[in-house]
């Protein structure tokens, strides 16, 4: 379970985003909707330890991660959180396998790569360079990299942001399929994808009271 308490982030332009306390339950699939700048990605980054909150805490399975050192946060993230980025964050000049095997640097077991690549129809392209792939294929590789370590939590920041809706929808279907029995939190601005999730949280104040109560930027 992921719990956020009194979380707030102040940016350089003095903008402050406050978040309502919330508990993300295990094995549920969440979609965070909202316009750009409402703090969706910032929330994911704070939950994964990429950035630190200005105040407040993030607990994962009861353990507070916000007060940990950056090294401990990095270590926790690479071992326990599968993070999928909007712009994939893949090394373009390297092959699919190399991009996944980069996790081995931190001792992550990547033996499940082949199975995941097969599930997502990418196995035959495993030795292709990232720069030779389409946007949809790149996102599938990013999903494999996030899931290969078998994490309990998967965070995805606009995973369909660089894809057209048709491809994006396929990617989301595949992502929810391979994330069964895991906590999946996806940030998106596309409401058409909500049907694939258990909980929809609207951070723009459109459909969820969560946003209205928590965001006082």
């Amino acid at each position: 379970m992921i719990e956020i308490k009194g979380l707030a982030k102040k940016f350089k332009n003095e903008l402050v985003i406050n978040y309502k306390d919330y508990k993300f339950e295990d094995n549920k699939k969440y979609i965070l909707l909202g316009a750009s700048g409402c703090g969706k990605s910032t929330l994911l980054n704070m939950m994964s330890g990429i950035i630190s909150p200005t105040r407040g805490q993030v607990f994962i399975d009861g353990k507070e991660i916000t007060s940990e050192s950056q090294h401990a946060k990095d270590s926790f993230r690479i071992k326990n959180i599968g993070y999928i980025f909007q712009d994939f964050k893949l090394i373009e000049e390297m092959t699919i396998m190399d991009n996944i095997n980069v996790l081995r640097i931190e001792g992550i077991d990547t033996s499940g790569t082949a199975e995941l690549l097969k599930k997502l129809g990418m196995y035959n392209k495993r030795n292709k360079k990232i720069k030779e792939l389409s946007g949809g294929e790149k996102q599938r590789v990013a999903i494999v990299r996030a899931l290969v370590k078998n994490p309990d939590i998967i965070l995805a920041d606009e995973p369909t942001g660089n894809l057209n809706f048709s491809i994006g929808e396929t990617v989301i279907k595949e992502l929810t399929e391979v994330s069964k029995a895991k906590t999946l939190i996806v940030v998106s601005h596309d409401e058409r994808l909500t049907k694939y999730f258990d909980v929809v949280i609207n951070m723009n104040g459109m459909t969820s009271s969560y946003e209205e109560e928590t965001k006082n930027a």
């Binding site: 090294h71 990095d74 270590s75 690479i78 964050k89 980069v102 996790l103 640097i105 931190e106 990299r145």
Partner: peptide, 10 residues
């Protein structure tokens, strides 16, 4: 990129 996926600076 490597830092984002959690590889330490060291």
């Amino acid at each position: 990129l490597m830092r984002l996926i959690g590889i330490s600076m060291g």
